[in-house]
């Protein structure tokens, strides 16, 4: 049985396989490190540069004019929170509804393919172009910069990511589970809401968080829409301060103190994003059942 013995593992083969196994493991670990090291380095550097400028005033005061020392970014923190909340309130529902259409209704339809194509193109549009679009479509008509324009522009930037992840996640919901719902006489809309979306929820939430984190750091669109301000926000229809804008202004300035404030602002911005993402994860993972998905 010479043919059969060739198929059996021999010593040299086993050794080679074990070696390539170790090699691939090593490459994977190396790749992970290559990604993690810069990330951690940035965080450490931010803390090193920014932490010393963080004090109570930073979180309670508005910026001081040139020449006066002290001041803080309280208005920017509040402004960023308002703009991001607005963007999420518009962008996430629209994005999820779009994803539901693509996955549940638009399969194989021309409109579905069109939306998918537009979403992918929109995803690749540079943020400064989105800023100019927001400027042309909203700011020009309103005749002034506004937080509203910023919120809407960031929302538009969130939509493609949210739509496409929602679609992808809904597609992973097993057909058998949908059938189970249909088999119980559950109407389609109810099946989508209570079964498909609920089963896909963890993935959809991840998509929303990605979209949120991406626009949270955007500066270019805000330059054309929110514009920035040195004062506390009063209403959505006026220029508003935002962390990325304030960081931009401070980092571009010739003053050492402002540079330090810019570092502190960056640290706060990153922390803000991490805390929001962590909070959403915590809230949405509560009440998960034993052995559930």
């Amino acid at each position: 049985m010479s043919t059969n013995s060739q198929l059996r593992p021999n010593r040299a083969n086993v050794l080679r396989r074990s070696a390539s196994n170790h090699l691939v493991t090593a490459i994977s670990v190396l790749g992970t490190l290559l990604v993690l090291v810069p990330l951690i380095a940035i965080l450490v550097y931010l803390v090193y540069k920014g932490a010393s400028s963080l004090n109570v005033a930073f979180f309670t005061h508005t910026p001081k004019p040139v020449g006066e020392s002290g001041g803080g970014m309280a208005n920017s923190i509040v402004g960023s929170s308002i703009i991001l909340l607005l963007a999420s309130l518009i962008g996430i529902p629209v994005g999820i509804l779009g994803g539901v259409y693509l996955a549940e209704y638009g399969a194989g339809k021309t409109l579905g393919a069109g939306i998918r194509f537009v979403a992918d193109v929109l995803n690749g549009v540079p943020s400064i172009v989105m800023g100019i679009a927001g400027y042309a479509l909203i700011v020009v008509h309103q005749r002034h910069f506004s937080a509203l324009a910023a919120g809407v522009t960031l929302a538009i930037m969130m939509v493609p990511t949210v739509t496409r992840t929602t679609e992808e996640m809904l597609m992973t919901v097993p057909h058998a589970i949908r059938e189970a719902a249909y088999g119980l006489g559950v109407p389609r809309w109810r099946m989508i809401l209570s079964i498909s979306l609920r089963t896909a929820a963890p993935g959809i939430i991840t998509g929303c968080m990605l979209a949120f984190a991406r626009v949270a750091g955007e500066t270019a669109p805000l330059l054309f829409t929110a514009f920035g301000s040195s004062f506390w926000p009063h209403n959505l229809n006026e220029p508003m301060a935002a962390l990325p804008l304030q960081i931009f202004v401070y980092a571009m300035s010739p003053y050492d103190e402002w540079h330090r404030l810019a570092w502190a602002g960056s640290l706060v911005l990153i922390t803000l994003i991490m805390v929001s993402v962590g909070l959403v994860r915590y809230v949405t993972s509560r009440g998960r059942l034993k052995g559930g998905h």
Partner: peptide, 29 residues
Amino acid sequence: RRRVGMVFQRPNPFPTMSIYDNVASGLKL
């Protein structure tokens, strides 16, 4: 489909629901 119930080849409980909610799902939904 409410008058004619169905059991499928592969068990397909709703993974996000508790045992109780799975049984009650036809009524609740």
